[in-house]
């Protein structure tokens, strides 16, 4: 009976297929969106930020982790590296935030045939990603500008500029390039694309067996906590350095502290990712052994 049970989970090679599929297609789409010029109407930008529907669709239909990581890597390789725009550390931040967002969107869906769930997941994916990007961007100015707090109007303007970009992207990219296409693609591909990779489609039953253990709500809560932690870390550390501004070797100290905070945040988000992966693995092992 072992073979029959194994078929409900994905084998290592099937995960690789999902990874390759997601990487190539999202990469391609990224190259296209990078090349299409954007239109500005005043400060409002009508640009194709990204074709988020591709990783969203794949995360919903297949293994969300591999589809999410594949897509992020595809973006880095096709959209940045090949166009000569690879940004070093900046890519790392995008990589983590986008993977995380897509992954969460993927696990939110327990039944790909449920349109409401799919729509919610698609929007949440974009919102989470844009939220993280916004926070990071605000954080950058915060760290980058000396005595940020004391300058009148700067804090407000950063929040407003970034917040505006956030709503712009969520409303424009989120609805046009995530919500609508995902709702169009998922039902059309469901049950059709899986056999091409030699898999069975996700159903509510097998979702339960592989994902029930994860409890989407729990994961979301954990991730939100992680973001909060991330944010608080930043806040407290920057406050700290205002207090100790007069201290000798302030720069040195400040550097250390901020390094520590970045480290903590990175460790936090990574450990959540790892926890998710290992839970997945454990769940699978359990099923295989049953």
């Amino acid at each position: 009976m072992q073979t029959v049970k194994e078929r409900y989970t994905l084998t290592q090679s099937q995960k690789m297929m999902v990874f390759i599929l997601s990487m190539s297609l999202y990469g391609l789409s990224n190259m296209i969106t990078e090349l299409v010029p954007s239109v500005y109407v005043g400060p409002v930008e009508f640009s194709i930020e990204y074709f988020a529907f591709i990783p969203l669709t794949l995360c919903i239909l297949f293994h969300p982790l591999y589809a999410a990581i594949g897509a992020s890597l595809g973006e880095v390789i096709f959209g940045e590296l090949m166009l000569g725009q690879f940004g070093g550390f900046g890519e790392l931040e995008k990589f983590i935030s986008f993977s995380l967002a897509m992954y969460i969107a993927g696990i939110m869906v327990t039944d790909p045939k449920n349109r409401q769930q799919v729509g919610m997941a698609a929007l949440s994916g974009v919102i989470i990603h844009q939220l993280i990007s916004m926070m990071v961007d605000i954080g950058k100015v915060w760290i980058g500008v000396d005595d940020f707090e004391t300058l009148p109007g700067l804090a407000e303007s950063v929040v407003v500029v970034e917040g505006f970009a956030f709503f712009n992207d969520v409303l424009f990219s989120g609805i046009l390039f995530a919500l609508i296409p995902t709702l169009y693609f998922v039902p059309r591909l469901y049950g059709k694309i899986e056999p091409l990779l030699g898999m069975k489609p996700r159903t509510r039953e097998n979702t339960h067996s592989t994902r029930g253990i994860l409890r989407p709500k729990l994961v979301i809560a954990a991730v939100l906590l992680a973001f909060a932690a991330f944010g608080f870390e930043f806040l407290s550390e920057t406050d700290l350095n205002i207090f100790e501004w007069e201290a000798p070797f302030a720069e040195q100290l400040e550097t250390n502290l901020i390094w520590i905070s970045i480290g903590v945040a990175a460790v936090l988000s990574l450990s959540i990712l790892f926890a998710i992966i290992s839970r997945n693995k454990k769940a699978k092992d359990r099923i295989a052994h049953e």
Binding site: M17, L21, L25, P181, F185, L196, L197, G198
Partner: peptide, 21 residues
């Protein structure tokens, strides 16, 4: 440009299978 990805998703899935094999 969006719906063009529908056929592409299916054909790339086929490719991915041979490649991984």
């Amino acid at each position: 440009s969006v719906i063009s990805f529908y056929p592409l998703l299916l054909s790339t899935a086929k490719r991915a299978r041979t490649t991984v094999e």
